[in-house]
């Protein structure tokens, strides 16, 4: 009991100031919980990797923070306030496969979308905005492709366009969903350099990551996720073999077995049912 209150004190400590503060978050698709009782406080100015096996809820965690999936329970704060109040402080890089790359837009058009929030409703994209978009493309080494239609870019180049768009958002906290997935060596280097730059500028980056080999070299902080937070903290402290085993070992841990049974029982009204009755 004393442990719990101590934990709550720590959690409360970051509530007003931390870039990301999450208390008791549960997310369910239909009846099946995807995230279960997530408590998380992330420090400012760090590069944070979110790792965990497939289906661990990594993308869902980001989407729940951004209000893209409904939460069954829980409280999420960005610098002490709700996401809706802090939109302008947040940048988002979705998974590359989540959009249609045959869409008739150029690389500049896509990057300029990062400025839409600042431009606001109904106002058009001006020449100045387009120039700024090209400037962001330059930062990721893509200015030569500014006028290319996006389907004519390689996977890595497309990812860099997405990053340039995030830069255009000029946010304090960035959420990136697998930016390293399926990119070439040059792009991987470009992304790492960019992350370092963002960190130097005092930004917080939360990155869904798959490659365990590179966690220690690319990131300072890590969240090990498997439906719940197995461990979170500085890489050197929590990125241990024991924690990794807990995160990845055995598809069905005791907890997830219990949850599975729970979800199958008819008429039980917790997270899953609430989510459905929203």
């Amino acid at each position: 009991m004393s442990n719990l209150s101590e934990f709550e004190n720590i959690a409360d400590a970051g509530q007003e100031t931390a870039p990301i503060w999450i208390n008791d978050l549960t997310v369910a698709y239909h009846r099946k919980p995807v995230l279960w009782d997530v408590n998380l406080v992330l420090p400012e100015g760090k590069l944070v990797a979110v790792i965990g096996p497939n289906g661990a809820g990594k993308s869902t965690l980001i989407k729940a923070i951004l209000g893209l999936v409904p939460k069954a329970t829980g409280d999420i704060r960005i610098y002490g306030r709700s996401y809706e109040a802090q939109r302008r402080l947040v940048g988002y890089v979705p998974q590359r496969e989540s959009v249609d790359w045959d869409f008739p837009v150029s690389a500049t058009d896509v990057v300029a979308m990062g400025l839409y929030g600042k431009i606001g409703w109904l106002k058009p994209v001006s020449r100045r905005h387009r120039e700024q978009a090209v400037e962001e493309l330059r930062k990721v080494g893509m200015e030569a492709y500014a006028d290319r239609q996006i389907s004519q870019l390689s996977g890595g180049q497309q990812q860099r366009v997405f990053l340039a768009r995030a830069l255009a958002q000029d946010a304090q906290v960035y959420f990136m969903d697998e930016p390293f997935a399926g990119v070439d060596v040059a792009t991987e280097k470009a992304i790492v350099a960019l992350l370092k730059e963002l960190k130097t500028a005092g930004k917080t980056c939360v990155v869904v990551h798959h490659d365990l080999q590179t966690v220690t070299t690319y990131f300072d902080h890590v969240v090990l996720l498997n439906m719940r937070v197995v461990a979170a903290g500085p890489v050197e402290e929590v990125f241990t073999e024991e924690n990794l085993k807990k995160t990845y070992g055995g598809k069905l841990t005791l907890l997830s077995q219990a949850l599975h049974k729970y979800a199958q029982q008819p008429g039980i009204g917790t997270g899953g049912a609430k989510g459905g009755h929203r």
């Binding site: 989407k63 209000g67 837009v105 896509v110």
Partner: peptide, 11 residues
């Protein structure tokens, strides 16, 4: 093009 990003931006 990108409904998720649009929604996070308030569109």
């Amino acid at each position: 093009f990108d409904p998720a990003l649009a929604t996070t931006m308030g569109f």
